[in-house]
Nucleic acid binder design. Structure first.
Lengths: 356, 356
DNA sequence: AAGGAAAATAAAAACGTTTTTATTACAGAT
DNA sequence: ATCTGTAATAAAAACGTTTTTATTTTCCTT
């Protein structure tokens, strides 16, 4: 078998090369490189100098084999449905980007595992933990009762989830304050005079979808009104879902006067449907959207959004995972981001609707 | 050091476990598992049965160390600029998704390497090749003269690029026929009566940006007109760039009557700007867009697009890399996809513009 | 029945590390 | 001068594989 060669055709330097070059044994070299206190300062200097000179870089596989660590951080990523080619999972670019930045400079390499559906995601998570394919993992799409979290907590495997489940378990996580966000959006619309508000939501088995319904309801209750729960719709996060749902809503006898949208893809579908129904935002209907990627500013007219730079969440996910993998307790590793409400419309139908 | 334990707390089975369990030596076990012809059929059966029974899975680090392979496929991913939080690099979700699907079932694991700018990308590529951090790599954002391609071809390191450079080198690649696409879009607009056509393009150092200018020019020349090269604009692929460029174009004395847009983010910016200028698509101006993620159907009005499911490109990238890593010649591994022109508008300003 | 070739398997070496154990050198104490 | 303890380093073992080399078994030939 050919040895690994560097581009120039020479064999890569190993710890043995350093040993031969410096005259020390490989054990001493290893200790010097790892900063063990048993080697003299002078020896360490000599070894480091040789390492620099020869361009030595520790072989990750050798380290991995000996230590049992993998130096891999796994990220579970949903595979976009090949079928409809609908706009889906767009925000993963930003999440990966953030995680990658956090891992940059650490010894860990980002490893992506695709999954096709929730069961698949569970199977992949279990495989990673059981076979120690990585030293830690990150995943999203958390269910109200998520078997992955229960399983990994039980196994003591380091992980950070994007989203919180509704079981009382202690685990590292990052999340958006969806309850507050839905509350803020709904309250703004209620203050604008709206009573029939639709919530275009994610599937209700997802934990954050429930959070949003909670916030939605709370806004009504605090204002002394009954929440328009009949206008709550759950589905996938595509433009198609937004369009179809909007059309359906406006075929009903009691139509909404405002909509809160789950994300910008869905919003695009909603706006498209409203347009084809001859309804104009700010005149006949108000729309507030969740905004991952700051694109709502370019809609015509620009709409009010709950803005949360998702790359930041990704970075925090990576940072937390690094800490978790060196055995930082999970309890301290939790952060819930509150998105910023960016008002681009008065959201009171231009004053055409009566305030209470 | 604690041994790797499976979730249930038991030590993971290794080739030694199988040896003890079956009575064969570890060498024989290895050969049986790898399907070497020197072991009897009966032995192989027994070994495989034991492997199934104990849930044995080969340890990737052990294999990696011995064989010198890493079983990692590296993908270089641009890190979205933390600064503007502009919509950027969205299509990477789909690319990764496609690659992940192609790698699924192979021995290779997808490894993501982020880079911040082109120089960084080159450095990362070199590091991966020099230190053998992966057995192959995939990257995009190819320049007309791309040092990564030259370097990797020279080093004999397996890779597949998304995009072609303009140097005469033999290497595996996947690309979109950008020359044709720009030609088709421009020709359609010329046929609709347009003469002043703007091209909202990527940065001209990118190879595909040049391809598009070529196609754009060819359409004019074949129709016997001078290409409106003064209306060609290159920049990043954000909505902001689309908006700012459009505003700039319509401030000039000789404004365009139609625009060809580089991608859907930019298109959103273009449409936003047109709207704020009081211009309506299909009446005052026509727009044709490149469409990665099939979202143009939801614009109001829907616009004509060049549609290319990008996940398919990703899948082919992965397939090619797998072949390349088992030493398939690079020459055969090339595919150029021609996008589909989906006409959603007549693109002749509703007949208001005179045909020649 | 002995010899030998071929087939099957066992044993050993190697990949690049880290860690444990053993050895050496040197100081200070007696 | 010898002993003891400590500091520094060397040597060896181990991680889980694959591959090369050695050994055993089988079976055919004479």
């Amino acid at each position: 078998m050919a040895k690994a060669k560097s581009e120039s055709g020479r064999t890569l330097p190993t710890i043995k090369t350093l040993a031969a070059h410096t005259g020390y044994s490989i054990g001493t070299i290893s200790k010097a490189l790892r900063g063990s206190p048993v080697v003299t300062e002078a020896t360490r200097e000599a070894v480091l100098a040789a390492a620099r000179e020869l361009g030595y870089q520790a072989n990750a596989r050798g380290m991995a084999l000996r230590t049992g660590k993998t130096y891999q951080a796994a990220v579970l990523m949903p595979i976009t449905s090949a079928a409809g080619y609908e706009w889906d999972g767009v925000e993963y670019t930003q999440i990966l980007s953030g995680i990658s930045q956090a891992l940059d400079g650490s010894d860990y390499q980002l490893s992506v595992y695709g999954y096709r559906n929730f069961d698949d995601a569970c199977a992949v998570a279990r495989r990673i933990a059981d076979q120690r394919l990585a030293d830690g993992m990150i995943f999203s799409g958390v269910l109200a009762s998520d078997p992955r979290i229960a399983m990994l907590v039980e196994a003591g495997f380091p992980f950070v989830s994007l989203g919180r489940c509704r079981q009382s378990l202690v685990y590292a996580h990052v999340d958006v304050d969806n309850e507050w966000a839905a509350y803020a959006a709904t309250a703004r619309l209620i203050a604008g005079g709206h009573r029939r508000i639709a919530l275009i939501n994610a599937e209700p088995r997802l934990s954050y979808a429930l959070d949003r319904i909670d916030g939605f309801s709370r806004a009504f209750k605090e204002a002394g009104h009954e929440p328009s729960l009949d206008l709550v719709n759950g589905g996938d996060l595509t433009a198609r879902f937004g369009r179809d749902t909007t059309r359906k809503l406006f075929k009903q006898p009691s139509t909404p006067t405002a909509l809160v949208c789950v994300n910008e893809a869905t919003t695009l579908g909603v706006l498209s449907a409203l347009n084809s129904l001859g309804l104009r935002v700010g005149e006949n209907v108000d729309v507030i959207a969740y905004d991952d990627i700051n694109v709502s500013a370019y809609f015509s007219p620009p709409i009010t959004t709950l803005y949360q730079p998702i790359e930041l969440l990704g970075r925090r996910l990576g940072e937390f995972l690094l800490l978790r993998m060196v055995d930082e307790g999970a309890a301290k590793l939790a952060e819930v981001f509150r998105p910023e409400l960016i008002g681009r419309q008065p959201d009171n139908l231009g004053g055409r609707i009566g305030r209470t």
